[in-house]
């Protein structure tokens, strides 16, 4: 367990080794917050939305997506540096290492949720009560669970593509688009609505919105469904991803794509 902790922490440190405190803060807090502000302003043009719910769900969305992308970036960097080859060649179970690295994203998500919420409370004077906090914690937990297969997917992709950026952009779009945080999924055509139920993070966001929008707090069946769905989607996706990862790894070894710059 300690060893795992060390690995997670070192992976985390390595990724940000070139950052100083300021660029780290800009990357992890300022940039995501401006992104949130941008979307919140855009959304509020419609006038009919609950501002608290919009702000909180967007913070969570930005944090989880950023954390998930993190491991993909780390892996693609390793490709450039050539260390990925070493990992794949080393006797250690590659998957375990990638998995650990994606866990390191959790540290990100926590930083990226807590600070913006405090700022939202004191700068934007958004009224946040204790129930909201519990909802945020549960949502972040669900979101992190959803982020694991997502970051694994990026990790897998980095094994077989040289244009990881392109994939990451597409990936961010899909998650944002179907999340329900930027616009209500009910605006989508029916078939797309059905699909969005199976997209990671969608259910976590729905879960959070249900609590933020309903003023009186009580656990109802809807919340159970949302969280149940997110958990099962995550578990299924993790299993699928393990299989994909192994397959891609073999493709990479066969096709020699690991050697590419």
């Amino acid at each position: 367990m300690r060893r795992w902790g060390t690995l997670i922490w070192l992976s985390y440190k390595e990724q940000y080794a070139t950052f100083n405190l300021i660029s780290f803060m800009v990357y992890k807090i300022v940039q995501p917050m401006i992104q949130v502000i941008f979307f919140v302003l855009l959304i509020s043009k419609n006038g009919d939305s609950n501002i608290k719910s919009v702000v909180l769900t967007n913070i969570i969305l930005a944090a989880v997506v950023n954390a998930a992308v993190y491991s993909g970036v780390i892996l693609s960097n390793e490709r450039v540096q050539g260390t990925l080859k070493l990992i794949v060649a080393s006797r250690n179970d590659t998957f375990k290492i990638v998995f650990l690295r994606s866990l390191a994203g959790i540290i990100d998500a926590i930083i990226m949720v807590i600070v913006p919420i405090i700022l939202a409370k004191f700068v934007l004077h958004i009224d946040i009560n204790s129930i909201d906090i519990i909802a945020v914690v549960i949502t972040v937990f669900l979101g992190m669970l959803a982020a694991i297969p997502l970051s694994l997917l990026i990790g897998s992709m980095s094994l077989i593509t040289t244009d990881l950026n392109l994939f990451i952009n597409l990936f961010i779009f899909v998650i944002n688009f179907f999340s329900g945080a930027l616009f209500s999924s009910q605006k989508l055509p029916y078939l797309w609505q059905v699909i969005s139920n199976f997209i990671p993070l969608h259910n976590s966001i729905q879960f959070a919105m249900a609590i933020f929008n309903e003023r009186q707090p009580h656990i109802n069946w809807q919340l159970v469904i949302f969280s149940g769905r997110e958990i099962s989607i995550s578990i299924v996706l993790i299993i699928v991803n393990v299989v994909i990862y192994k397959k891609f790894e073999r493709t990479a070894q066969k096709g020699g794509t690991l050697e590419l710059y």
Partner: peptide
């Protein structure tokens, strides 16, 4: 597409 859906109530 994204902006369309965000702004479609407008």
């Amino acid at each position: 597409i994204l902006l369309y859906f965000i702004l479609s109530n407008k």
